[in-house]
Design a protein around this nucleic acid. Sequence first.
DNA 1: CTGTGTGCAAAGCTTTTGCACTACT
DNA 2: AGTAGTGCAAAAGCTTTGCACACAG
Lengths: 120, 120
Amino acid sequence: MTPTSQRIEIGSVLLAQPQHLSAEQILAEVRRHGLRVSKATIYNTLNLFVRQGLVREVNVDPTRTFYDSTTHPHHHFFNADTGELIDIPPNSVVFEQMPVLPEGTVQDRVDVVIRLRNES
Amino acid sequence: MTPTSQRIEIGSVLLAQPQHLSAEQILAEVRRHGLRVSKATIYNTLNLFVRQGLVREVNVDPTRTFYDSTTHPHHHFFNADTGELIDIPPNSVVFEQMPVLPEGTVQDRVDVVIRLRNES
DNA sequence: CTGTGTGCAAAGCTTTTGCACTACT
DNA sequence: AGTAGTGCAAAAGCTTTGCACACAG
């Protein structure tokens, strides 16, 4: 986990604020800052960050993976019309009842995605 | 929406029982039944079925889309160790509180995914 | 000089598109 | 013959892999 210039820059871009970025957006941003970097390095670095627990992957849109700089448990709104992903404030989703887990398994985490459309 | 042999066979395979299949699995199954069909037709047909409301897409694993023959609202367990997707019985997930939606949007649907791991 | 670990070109996926073709009218 | 709609080869796009290279010990 050597802190190379690519890794530092990718980390700075994504972790600057709570946000959800695709690999493509991160690549564009890092290049805009003047660093020469390939798409493969973006992916490799993001996967590394995910394994290290620095960022979280969010899968809602099958066409692209979002990387989320907020790692503590929280949920998402996904606007199907705009492709926008918005954090749901913690504690605004509360469960009254949860199912029994299948035999031999333990719970890893719970993802709630509320899909939205723009009001006609 | 002409009922061609390809469409009938794909429909039979997927809708035979409540299940979650990937495009790859459906292709294999349809071919095992002796029908000559391309992957593109599988995708085109499944997308058509989704638009018609016959099946639902489920996105949990970024590497593949699952097609779910159960269309009424329900949630899923996803076993991250096995890649297995299991229906959660309806009514076993109950919300006590839900967030206010962003301005100008309406709710489409809510997806809850409980990620599991095998017990060590 | 050796070994660990990086960054990227090329390869490997899944999924979509464009077009020849079919089957009704 | 015209037209609406199908099925698939080829293309597109996202992600991973394999390898040349760099740097620390």
